[in-house]
């Protein structure tokens, strides 16, 4: 690692924002006969908080490890801030912070010592390291644990320390593999708050997680992969529209029998079902205007008391579009 690389890394921080944070083209990776990734193409924009969703063995970790320069793709290309992860691996390493799904900590070290050590590995000058370590500890809420041995920290604190390590060299892109796994609810909420703060600071974050409800509120964009293939990539809010074949509305109206009859006669309705006093109405397509239903019911003499869209969550979409198959 040379000084030139460091200068280069510093220059990258002010690289044109037109260059996406991550660009993946037709990426494949095989292990012997096993295909972990197959033709994955993906773009992550700057300052995105990008959720990476998939079953166990879907290829999430492989993708993150390729971006972290540990793995060479079998075919295809991946670029981080315009740099090829294979040919320009050294440069890429200065631009990313990688937090794997295991701790990788040295239990005999102290918190500050651990961060100081990684700071030295990144060739951060000794004079600057002290403040950097103090800043990142404050950011992740570990300032009071400066002198503690890592082995004596709780799991949640060790995860936070891992995040502090990732931030020590002020990377532009964070690759976080299951950062909230094994954390208690409070620690998870705190971790998510830290990630949102980092996004506000302009960091691009790719986060792989199984806790989809949290990703739904946290991320602005996401990708779903299964068996190494991309199923969806785009805004989290748009995932339902794009991935669900039909649209569902919930209706409560009186008299119920009249309302049900009217809905069944409506050409925009594909299917109806009464569940606990409410009518679940499946429309023929996503493009169908739900106002037609309201109009039909009111004109037919039914009194409308509830009329709302089905708020299908990321979890339901995920279950709907994936088959749970692994490699």
């Amino acid at each position: 690692m040379s000084d030139a690389n460091l200068k280069f890394a510093a220059r990258e921080a002010s690289a044109p924002p037109s260059i996406p944070a991550v660009q993946i083209h037709d990426l494949s990776r095989t292990y012997g006969n096993m295909t972990a990734l197959s033709g994955l193409s993906l773009t992550v924009n700057r300052a995105d908080l990008f959720g990476f969703i998939g079953s166990n063995g879907a290829g999430k970790t492989t993708t993150l490890r390729i971006l972290a320069t540990f793995l060479t793709p079998s075919s295809g290309r991946a670029e981080v801030l315009g740099h090829d992860v294979v040919r320009q691996a050294d440069r890429v390493r200065h631009l990313i912070g990688y937090m794997p799904d295991f701790f990788g900590v040295y239990k005999d070290m102290e918190v500050t010592e651990y961060l100081d050590f990684f700071g030295a590995c990144y060739k951060i000058p000794a004079a600057a390291r002290e403040k950097t370590v103090s800043d990142v500890l404050e950011l992740v809420g570990l300032s009071e644990k400066k002198g503690a041995l890592i082995g004596a920290l709780s799991r949640g604190m060790q995860q936070r320390l891992g995040l502090a390590r990732v931030l020590i060299h002020d990377p532009q892109l964070l690759l976080l593999d299951e950062p909230a796994s094994g954390l208690d609810p409070r620690a998870r909420i705190e971790m998510m708050a830290i990630l949102q703060e980092l996004q506000r600071m302009g960091k691009t974050i790719i986060i792989s997680s199984h806790i989809l409800s949290e990703l739904q509120t946290l991320c602005n964009r996401c990708a779903i992969i299964e068996r190494g293939k991309l199923i969806y990539s785009g805004p989290v809010q748009g995932v339902r529209e794009q991935m669900s074949e039909t649209r569902v509305m919930w209706v409560r109206a009186t008299p119920e029998a009249t309302a049900l009859h009217l809905l069944q006669q409506c050409p925009a309705v594909h299917h109806t079902e009464v569940i606990e006093g409410r009518i679940k109405v499946t429309l023929v397509s996503h493009d169908t205007d739900p106002a037609i239903l309201a109009e039909t019911l009111v004109k037919g003499g039914a009194r409308l008391t509830e009329f709302r869209d089905d708020e299908m969550g990321l979890e339901e979409v995920f279950l709907q579009v994936t088959k749970g198959e692994t490699q």
């Binding site: 690692m1 050294d90 390493r93 990313i96 990688y98 701790f103 990788g104 040295y106 590995c121 060299h169």
Partner: peptide
């Protein structure tokens, strides 16, 4: 075995280091 080696590699340490 602890995975620390990967973290050091991503921190820029190379074979020679």
């Amino acid at each position: 075995s602890s995975g620390g080696l990967e973290l050091l590699m991503v921190a820029g340490l190379e074979r020679k280091d």
